[in-house]
Design a protein around this nucleic acid. Structure first.
Length: 345
DNA sequence: AGTGACGAATGCGAGAATGC
DNA sequence: GCATTCTCGCATTCGTCACT
């Protein structure tokens, strides 16, 4: 069976999460295992530790239905402090990830322990998006299609507790728009860039002008007594009713700061642009789905955006917010034009 | 090209579950 | 109670890859 290299496995998982609209910042080298990374989207941010192996069949002498990962190269699993820990197996022939609950695997490991999952669970996930298998002792092995891996990360605890609604929901996959995909693609760190070429200054000035309009519109739509919002928006802040504006402002200011430099970090600009495009996407979805999301939304990021758009306290005018959505699109498009101009393929 | 490290394939054994 | 089956974990072997 095809076997992927460690760097490919890590890349596959990161790509699956990125395809869900998350901006990924890898904190370890490409083949370092476990991999650690930061995933962020519209003000929501998770630090993640990723353990991943190929999923293989149990062997000739084993049940034909048995698949497993074999834990090699580590003495024990170490959970990510204040973050998420993923134990994944990539099942190439099923096109799904197997995911195991780190809370049940925190003890010392043997010389070459393995963790099993059945083909029925893997097939079921390939069809339905996700599936769980009771392994006894309260442990559930989960299988998840790549397009929903981001949801798995967000709802890991509930899913291993048996609530698969986040994986099985009828909502469309959180597919990024073409604009977001293009920005994410052009945010690759290994792309060469060239600055100061003819026309580049004009494109750069256009981005800054659009950002100024956006920040101005945000200022105007701010309630009379806004309450000062902190710098970064930590994940736990989702529960607070602070709106999506701080995350937008942070991304916009980040772009402006970079573009003030003679040689900006284009990858950072691209990632921030993707964040703005995603915010616009969320706000569009929230507008379409209306206030019901505020009550029922399972996707925290979308709920968060819905609150921001509709104004949880009724203090923010929709007309202003629609204008802001349009401005977010314009900034992201301007960033894309600039990135396309400075990137060398 | 040689070497070592790593990871997957394979086989085996222990223990639990099930059926007679 | 015993035999069989199944699940799970461990050990060994072997192939692949990276490094020198």
């Amino acid at each position: 069976m095809a076997r992927l290299k460690k760097s490919d496995l890590i890349g596959l998982a990161l790509q699956a999460i990125a395809d869900g609209g998350w901006v990924i910042e890898l904190l370890t080298k490409g083949n370092e295992h476990p991999a650690r990374f930061k995933m962020s989207r519209a003000g929501v941010e998770h630090h993640v530790r990723l353990y991943i192996w190929n999923l293989s069949h149990g062997g000739k002498s084993r049940s034909e239905h048995e698949f497993r990962i074999q834990i090699t190269g580590i003495e024990q699993f170490e959970p990510e402090p204040d973050g998420r820990t993923l134990i994944l197996g990539w099942g190439e022939e099923f096109g799904v990830f197997a995911a195991f609950d780190v809370q049940h695997r925190l003890g010392a490991l043997g010389a070459s322990p393995s963790i099993q999952i059945t083909d029925a669970t893997l097939k079921s996930a390939a069809e339905d998006g996700g599936a769980a298998q009771d392994k006894g002792d309260g442990e559930r092995a989960v299988a998840v299609r790549p397009g929903r891996l981001g949801r798995y990360v967000e709802n890991q605890e509930a899913i291993h507790a048996g609530d698969l609604s986040a994986l099985l929901g009828d909502e469309p996959e959180d597919e990024p728009t073409d604009l977001e995909k293009s920005l994410i693609d052009l945010s690759a760190n290994d792309l060469k860039r060239e600055f100061g070429t003819p026309g580049e200054a004009d494109l750069r000035a256009d981005v800054i002008a659009q950002i100024d309009s956006l920040l101005g519109a945000l200022d105007e739509s701010r309630p009379a007594e806004p309450g000062q919002i902190g710098h970064n928006l930590p994940p736990e802040a989702i529960d607070e009713d602070v709106g999506v504006a701080p995350a937008i402002e942070e991304a916009a200011n980040g772009i402006r700061d970079e573009l003030a430099k003679p040689e900006p970090d284009a990858a950072e600009v691209g990632k921030a642009g993707a964040k703005l495009a995603w915010a616009a996407h969320l706000l569009d979805m929230a507008k379409a789905e209306g206030a019901k999301l505020i009550e029922k939304g399972k996707d925290l990021a979308r709920e968060y955006a819905a609150k921001a758009l509709w104004g949880a306290a009724g203090t923010i005018g929709v007309v202003f917010k629609e204008e802001i959505v349009a401005l977010l699109h314009r900034v992201a498009e301007a960033v894309l034009r600039w990135l396309q101009h400075v990137s060398i393929f």
